[in-house]
Design a protein around this nucleic acid. Structure first.
Length: 420
DNA sequence: TCTGGGGTCCTAGGACCC
DNA sequence: TCTGGGGTCCTAGGACCC
């Protein structure tokens, strides 16, 4: 078996640069929702020592001093470019697993015309030429090794973005260069545990006794050891398994004490959630609503959630809103400054196996038609063109996005004008 | 003033069954 | 001195991913 892991370099920052070629070679950072913390950095920004996850306000001095270009997250842009990258990859291998917005695994066993490295270079140049996104490619006989190879490809400029463990006798020497904490599946907890026991590199873990690892890190840990030893345990996931839960939650641009505002914000989340359910042709059987105050602020704190089991599963915005209001009103306590709320749909089932209840009085057919019409209109004329009044009109809670770039590829009005 | 959002998998332990 | 054995389902919590 042979796997390639293709990973876009600093994906969000690279996306911003595609339509701003003047930013080539300049430091770029992209901020999380609400312009909160740093979630992506160009190589130049990394070199300045801006850490991942750092709160933006703490970086202000560094940003102004070094003329760092700052962007709010533009998921319309990143999502669209991601689809295009995955489209190119799908053309290049019949067996692809889209692992995240900026990563995909490819099975490349059947590629005979090129060596693995040549093939990786081809992927790299195609995506860069056609889309302007730089990628790194790692190759190995298991997914974990492909991931590890990708780390080497990225971390050592000498490899120019491609590294393969295949047909190599000195693979172990390279595994010694990988800190155990950088391996796929090893997080902070396990990394510090392993380091305490002198397991510092990927090579050390490869040689660690499996039974001991299993007793300390469960089967997931044991699998990593096996995979480092070239025994493949983690297969490709061809069809994206249907989601088990869908969650929509946001911090507000500014906190509120007002129940009405809390309700408007959460109703907007319900709209997004219901749309997602309908798009995936799923119904929710259980709905959880949660609210919280700012966990960093000094004032009185409050975190609470309420779960409602639905007697009849649904994906209707109206029905979900009714449940949400019921839950939210019981959660609301006066006097707290609410910063965030969210909703979680669980126990999702396919829409074609709805089990109705004897005492169910809802006209499901009518609801279905209504939702279809709603989705159709909004698809044509833009999100929320038609919406429930519960969502309100002034959106006081909406998140800060002060440095948002244009939606160059998904909005007619944002398409670039080029003058010759 | 300002600190993201959305997921999965695994295990232990309790409740319950025959 | 010395409790039966074998199983399922559910939930909470931990760890991990991007």
């Amino acid at each position: 078996m042979l796997f390639a892991l293709v990973d876009c370099n600093n994906f969000y920052a690279s996306c911003e640069r595609v339509f701003r070629p003047d930013l080539e070679g300049k430091p770029i950072i992209v901020l999380s929702n609400n312009d909160g913390c740093v979630i992506a950095r160009s190589a130049e920004a990394k070199a300045l020592g801006i850490p991942m996850g750092a709160p933006a306000f703490e970086m202000e001095e560094l940003i102004t001093k070094n003329k760092v270009f700052v962007f709010s997250s533009n998921y319309a842009l990143y999502g669209d470019l991601s689809q295009r990258v995955m489209g190119v990859l799908s053309q290049m291998s019949p067996d692809i697993e889209i692992y995240s917005i900026d990563e995909a695994f490819l099975r490349i066993d059947s590629i005979r015309l090129y060596s693995p490295e040549e093939y990786a270079r081809k992927i790299q140049s195609n995506i860069y030429e056609w889309l302007g996104i730089p990628v790194s490619v790692g190759i190995g006989s298991t997914k974990t090794l492909a991931k590890a190879a990708n780390y080497l490809a990225k971390s050592f400029p000498g490899h120019r973005g491609v590294f393969s463990f295949e047909n190599r006798t000195d693979g172990d020497e390279y595994l010694k260069q990988i800190p155990v904490s950088k391996l796929w599946g090893i997080g902070e907890q396990h990394a510090s545990f392993l380091q305490q026991h002198d397991v510092a590199s990927a090579y050390d873990l490869k040689k660690a006794p499996e039974a001991w690892i299993r007793s300390k890190m469960n089967v997931t840990g044991a699998r990593i050891v096996k995979e480092l030893n070239a025994i493949s345990c983690i297969p490709m996931e061809d069809a994206p398994a249907h989601r088990k839960a869908i969650c929509i939650s946001r911090s507000y641009g500014r906190p509120t004490k007002n129940y009405r505002e809390l309700e408007e914000a959460t109703a907007a989340f319900v709209s997004r959630l219901a749309e997602k359910l309908r798009k995936q042709k799923m119904l929710a059987t259980r709905l959880t609503v949660f609210v919280m105050t700012n966990r960093f602020a000094r004032g009185p704190r409050y975190v609470n959630f309420k779960t409602i089991n639905l007697s009849v599963p649904t994906h209707s915005t109206a029905e979900l809103n009714r449940m949400m209001v019921k839950a939210l009103s019981s959660l609301f306590r006066k006097g707290y400054l609410y910063k965030k709320s969210g909703i979680l749909a669980e126990e999702l089932i396919p829409e074609n196996i709805r089990q109705t209840s004897l005492w169910d009085s809802t006209d499901h057919e009518k609801q279905e038609k209504l939702m279809k019409a709603l989705d159709l209109i909004n698809a044509k004329t833009g999100r929320d063109s038609v919406r429930y009044a519960l969502q309100g009109f002034d959106r006081k809670w909406k998140m800060r996005q002060e440095k948002l770039s244009a939606s160059y590829t998904t909005k007619w009005s944002d398409i670039l004008n080029i003058q010759i």
